[in-house]
Design a protein around this nucleic acid. Structure first.
Length: 487
RNA sequence: GGGGGUGUAGCUCAGUGGUAGAGCAUCUGCCUUUUAAGCAGGUGGUCGUAGGUUCGAUCCCUACCACCCUCACCA
């Protein structure tokens, strides 16, 4: 055990007991606050000489014997306080000695400006509102250990003000999404997280168990099939802000649980959805960033102009000089190998085309680009392309080399859909553990008739990364998935 | 899962084959407009964990754990 003379934890405990010995509750029930800190800091003109009561976390103290300067922090910002011995009674001045950095305190007094021009509250009364028993990270270097930042997000938020700005932007993003979709006649709905069958995406699920029903349940990997059931049921336009769960690796762009927005609109096709999606992204950018821009690290991208729309096979032809259209599977395999694409685990024509695209085209799609008309084989929930049976009516939006959204003219022919599921089952049998599973109830729903429908899904986390310039998905998720804390 | 890196005081980091240092925080004293306040003094560490080599390991070796980067899978 550390020596008590220097252990900050011991000293904080001692101060706690000293407060109690004075009859002061270190964790009182409420405080009458007249202003938030930024309101005082920015409102000197009409607050000068007036008495205010403010509260916040004590972040720094500069003592000068019979006088102290300190800063409080709340969600709005910081405010300086000034305590002088001759302006308060003895108990109040002594009370400050029982305060530590990190304590939540209440301060009331008059607003004035110091000779350096900083708006400050001259203390008349002090109150402890919550004693902090653990020391804050160092004031100058702060907290940089990313592991601790994510595990103890509360600490990250206290010490790194820009973190709060990122999450404010995330909230604004979701608000903008909802406002836009509501305005366009979409109804927000909720569908099951616990599903007896998983579907709507190519991914491995988390598995759980329901005791009363003694049945296996999956955490959803997408809400797509439920939303389209609702279109069958007669909803014209629906959307869901949807936590999805995929049992896969984690890295800078992947967290096991993440937030998707999916929306579906009856009587629209993928061209209509494309226009709508572009408007949506521009709307979000304006709301969150105040301009039609996105941010890739330090680089700001203007997205106000036209967004190119390129068929996938054409994008490959342009990038590689090779034409994969109208080629047999052996032919595309040869072409792909020729340009150095690793085809391990890629068995079908569509998977090979997709792999070539991912390696040779996608990383270069920095400015917003719609890639359209993917191989039908890798698009089991999309209608066949009306101009080419081997392709689907599908687009993906790419920004900064990353996929931002994925949309189809939704497949509504139940017999066609059954064949697609069956083909997926064969792929599962061949070892593809991300293939779709057969969903008889979904086929039954389609059999009652689904209107022509356009639908789209896009990941909120990655969009927020582009809106804030965050380099890692963990920077935009308040509590990212972590291994259990060691030791 | 493969490859690379990191792990030393509460925090940010130096450093050495002979059991350790700085700044900040903390404690004591001085200081009535400071702001990374200052000055003086003090306390504080089983050097990630477990083995091994060695007379002796925080340092060298091995394994493990955690995190970061990167590749693979995916949104």
């Amino acid at each position: 055990m550390a020596d008590e003379k220097s252990d900050p934890l011991v000293h904080r405990r001692e101060k706690l007991e000293r407060l109690r010995a004075k009859g002061i509750n270190p964790f009182p029930y409420r405080y009458d606050r007249t202003h938030k800190l930024a309101e005082v800091a920015g409102g000197f003109e009409h607050l000068e000489g007036k008495t205010v009561a403010v509260a916040g976390r004590l972040m720094s103290v500069r003592g000068h014997g019979k006088t102290m300067f300190f800063h409080l922090q709340d969600q709005t910002g910081k405010l300086q306080g000034y305590l002088r011995q001759d302006a308060v009674d003895e108990d109040t001045f002594a009370l400050f000695k029982d305060f530590d950095l990190g304590d939540i305190i209440g301060v009331s007094g008059e607003v004035f400006k110091t000779k350096t021009g900083e708006t400050t509250v001259k203390v008349r009364k002090l109150e402890i509102l919550a004693k902090s028993l653990l020391p804050l990270p160092e004031k100058w270097h702060g907290l940089t250990d990313v592991d601790i930042r994510f595990r103890r997000r509360y600490l990250d938020l206290i010490v790194n003000p820009e973190v709060m700005a990122i999450f404010a932007a995330r909230t604004k993003t979701l608000r903008a999404v909802r406002a836009f979709l509501d305005k366009h006649g979409f109804l927000e709905v909720e569908t099951p997280v616990l599903q007896p069958l998983y579907g709507g995406a190519a991914a491995r699920p988390f598995v759980t168990h329901h005791n009363a029903l003694d049945m296996r349940l999956y955490l959803r990997i997408a809400d797509e099939l439920y939303l389209k059931r609702l279109i069958v049921g007669g909803f014209d336009r629906v959307y869901e802000v949807c936590k999805d769960f995929r049992n896969e690796g984690m890295d800078r762009e992947h967290n096991p649980e993440f937030t998707m927005v999916e929306f579906y609109a009856a009587y629209l096709d993928y061209h209509d959805i494309m226009k709508l999606f572009r408007e949506l992204i521009l709307h979000i950018a304006r709301e969150v960033r105040g301009s039609e821009t996105l941010q890739l690290g330090e680089e700001v991208i203007d997205i106000s102009g036209e967004w190119p729309e390129v068929p996938l096979l054409e994008s490959i032809r342009t990038a590689t000089g090779r034409d994969f259209a109208n080629s047999s599977i052996d032919e595309v395999r040869r072409l792909a190998t020729e340009i150095g694409v690793d085809l391990t685990g890629k068995n079908t024509w569509g998977q090979i085309i997709d792999e070539v695209f991912s390696e040779k085209v996608q990383p270069n799609l920095v400015r917003p680009t719609f890639i359209t008309d993917h191989p039908r084989e890798i698009s089991p929930l999309a209608k066949a392309n009306r101009r080419d049976e081997t392709l689907a009516e599908r687009f993906e939006l790419f920004v900064g080399g990353k996929e931002i959204g994925n949309a189809f003219s939704e497949l509504s022919d139940p017999d066609d859909q059954r064949e697609r599921f069956e083909s997926q089952s064969r792929q599962a049998g061949a070892g593809d553990d991300e293939a779709h599973v057969m969903d008889e109830d979904y086929l039954r729903a389609l059999s009652y008739g689904m209107p022509p429908t356009g639908g789209l899904g896009f990941g909120i986390d990655r969009l927020v990364m582009l809106l804030t310039g965050a380099a890692s998905i963990r920077e935009v998720i308040l509590f990212p998935t972590m291994r259990p804390e060691g030791t």
